[in-house]
Design a protein around this nucleic acid. Structure first.
Lengths: 209, 209
DNA sequence: ACCTGAACACCGTTCAAGT
DNA sequence: ACCTGAACACCGTTCAAGT
């Protein structure tokens, strides 16, 4: 292979190729199954070669998280605040549900990178334009984000359902009166509906500056 | 030591002693540092001995999570719905903040045990008593829970802040107009205030059946 | 019933050596 | 600049043996 202009291809390896293979591995085998050695095997390379492009296992996982985050589409510059925030929330959700086993990387890691700021800008801009004082806008942003993180963790099977994991009969037999009474509803969880229900509450609360 | 009535003490080991030592280990060294072998060393015992009382590392972590969950105080049987839900939310928060490094165990694991149902009963009972149809009560419960999980993950340093991790100067230099404008508020995060702000939104939304 | 220790099949990462 | 392989200090868990 001849050398090209710009970034030379050099070996088989590159940060991007490693991150993509890592994401594929998480998608297929789950987070717990990821190891540097297995990832190297998948790439046909010595385990230590990965360290030339990635700072270690933790940095690898951060990198994968950032890829996922970067895949969230910017919401259309809609004048309507509610539309904008709803679009972003749905985009976030779609990105996470597209990689359910990798989603906890985004939902449970503190990402230092600048890419994490793009969604913040997308929410904050319309809030400020709508006349929110910046402190209230940040409060609102954080409340919505907390709800999103919590629901998505649940959708992605990584958060407690406090009930949903139990079977109907077990709930009815629990001896807890309210739990028994609501058992049919506790036993199933329509994630879509729960998401819309909670999101509406948050957006209603932020309807007026 | 003479044999006692009831459960005989047998060896040094017991499920309870193991779980307590495990929780202490998480508190002191963090989740990532927990290993069966180190826990055994701490207990002065062969690693394999733990397996007589606990089903493996995953079951150990589940057991620790359940201990934490069981420590949430039952809310006083207050006739006021809002009081009750607020008391439970604050009890949950206090329990998690009491063991910040162990909190992700509760917040990110699907607990099958029946102990996870006690808080559900505590929330559901007053909602049903207040006249909520059970499906709406369950919706409300899940929305509040999602918010709690999301905020507590953030408080406990395990969830993305999307901004909070950045320093003020960095935010101002980001080139993102809304981020720069709100930078002073993004740079700090008063967890207490954020918690109350979000909780109020959720409780307001559930004020009427 | 409980505890032990050797053994197996893994880990992440450092370091010196190669090209 | 990138890749390699040996080596180090760990893992969780199975299994056969002890008491």
């Amino acid at each position: 292979m001849t050398t090209r202009r710009g970034r030379p291809p050099k070996g088989v390896l590159s940060r991007e190729r490693i991150l993509l293979a890592g994401l594929a591995m998480v998608d297929e085998e789950g987070l717990a199954a990821v190891s540097m050695r297995k990832l190297a095997r998948r790439l046909g390379v010595d385990p230590m070669s990965l360290y030339n492009h990635v700072d270690g296992k933790d940095a690898l996982l951060d990198g994968i998280a950032e890829m996922l985050l970067a895949a969230i589409p910017a919401p259309p510059a809609d004048p309507d605040l509610r539309e904008t925030m709803s679009a972003l929330a749905h985009g976030f959700r779609a990105a996470m549900l597209g990689h359910p086993r990798a989603a906890p990387l985004v939902l449970t890691r503190r990402l230092a990178s600048i890419t994490a700021l793009a969604p913040v800008e997308a929410v904050l801009a319309p809030l400020l334009a709508a006349g929110y004082p910046p402190d209230r806008a940040v409060h609102g942003l954080r409340a919505v984000l907390a709800f999103l993180v919590g629901t998505l963790m649940r959708e992605v099977e990584a958060a407690p359902t406090f009930g949903g994991a139990h079977r109907l009969a077990e709930l009815e037999r629990s001896g807890l009166p309210a739990v028994s009474a609501a058992a049919p509803y506790l036993a199933v969880c329509d994630h879509e509906a729960e998401f819309e229900f909670g999101l509406r509450i948050m957006l209603d609360a932020l309807a007026e500056p």
